[in-house]
Amino acid sequence: MPPKPEDALKWLSASYSTADLLAMLTVNQNASPIVIDLPWPLPSQGFGNPLDRSGRGGGSCYRNGKAYIDYGDLDTARGNRATAADACIDDSLIDKGSPVGTKKPGRYQEARDLADDEGLEPETAINACHLIADKLGGDGKDLRNLSTCARQANSYRSVDNGRIEDNMRAFEKEVIYQVVKNKQIVHYNVEPVYADDSKVVPVAYIMLAFGTDAAGVPGFQKAEVVPNSLYGPKSKTWYNLGLQ
Results as ranks from 00 to 15, higher is better:
K4E: 11
E6I: 13
D7W: 10
L9C: 11
Y16K: 09
Y16W: 11
S17R: 10
A19L: 11
V27E: 12
Q29K: 15
N30I: 11
L38G: 07
W40S: 14
F47Y: 10
G48E: 04
N49I: 10
P50E: 02
D52F: 06
R53Y: 06
G57E: 00
C61I: 02
Y68D: 00
I69C: 03
I69P: 01
Y71M: 05
G72H: 00
D73L: 13
T76C: 02
G79C: 06
R81P: 05
A85W: 04
A85E: 00
D86V: 00
D86A: 03
G97F: 03
G97V: 10
T102P: 04
Q109M: 12
Q109S: 15
L120C: 05
L120H: 03
E121Y: 13
E121P: 12
A125Q: 02
A125R: 08
N127M: 14
C129I: 08
D134C: 03
K135L: 01
K135N: 04
L136Q: 00
G137T: 00
N154G: 03
D160P: 06
I164N: 12
E165A: 15
A170G: 09
K173M: 07
Q184M: 15
I185E: 03
N189E: 12
P192W: 02
Y194D: 03
D196G: 10
A204P: 05
M207Q: 13
T212Q: 01
D213P: 08
A215N: 10
F220M: 04
E224Y: 11
V226T: 07
V226G: 03
P227S: 03
G232V: 01
K234E: 03
Y239L: 06
Y239G: 02
